[in-house]
């Protein structure tokens, strides 16, 4: 299981030298990893980049200028959906009841586990092309409601047990969906945080 402890500590907003936080995160990781039931879907599609979005070979169009910009030059994309499963949510709720510190640490650890899992699954996907960073509904001007389109193409409900709530949140909550551009060069001028609407985010990495 690929997992970045340093990143988990950053999510938890711990200082680099905080030993107690380190122990907390390690303890939680050991408890949480037994609850992980990770699954994913990766599907390759050819696409046409339009000015205001991306048209896929299955005639679904994602509407977002930022996405179009992010995928500029790509003839193919990967659609990704991944989840750690609902047992992780149950466990996080359980930890939170016993200790808010463990609950918060579990949120941070689970977020890092799903990110690491996505990285790993993407690396295993055989392609001669380079993969651009993940771009998800909700980033930039890509409306969150377009999540429904991704779900329909990938059949996330049936194949992963991954669902959307009425408020367009993913359940199980430790899940990722994204579009990944494929191109000859690893061109990426895009920075996740700069594109994000959440300008108050404590994790924002923008100078």
């Amino acid at each position: 299981m690929r997992y970045s402890r340093a990143e988990a500590l950053r999510y938890l907003r711990a200082q680099a030298n905080d030993e107690a936080a380190g122990i907390l995160v390690d303890t939680v990781f050991l408890k949480l990893r037994n609850e992980v039931q990770a699954r994913h879907l990766l599907q390759k599609h050819t696409c046409e980049i339009l000015e205001d979005g991306v048209l896929l070979d299955c005639s679904v169009k994602f509407t977002s200028k930022d996405l179009a910009k992010h995928l500029s030059g790509c003839k193919e994309v990967l659609l990704l959906a991944a989840t750690l499963g609902s047992k992780v949510d149950v466990a996080i709720r359980r930890f939170s009841l016993e200790s808010v510190a463990e609950g918060a640490a579990a949120q941070a650890v689970a977020a890092c586990i799903i990110e690491g899992y996505c990285d790993e699954m993407q690396e295993r996907f055989e392609t001669d092309l380079k993969q651009r960073p993940r771009f998800s509904p909700g980033y930039g001007d890509w409306d969150l409601s377009e999540q429904r389109k991704l779900f329909a193409i990938l059949e996330c409900e049936k194949k992963l047990g991954l669902t959307l709530t009425d408020g367009l949140m993913m359940a199980p909550s430790k899940s990722v969906t994204a579009v990944i551009g494929l191109s000859e060069e690893a061109a990426c001028l895009w920075n996740k945080c700069e594109q994000c609407n959440n300008i108050n985010c404590p994790y924002r990495e923008v100078e």
Binding site: R13, D18, A101
Partner: peptide
């Protein structure tokens, strides 16, 4: 002092 310590203190107080 930072979030982890705040939370651990909250647990200890609880």
């Amino acid at each position: 002092l930072f979030l982890p310590q705040l939370l651990m203190s909250a647990d200890a107080a609880k």
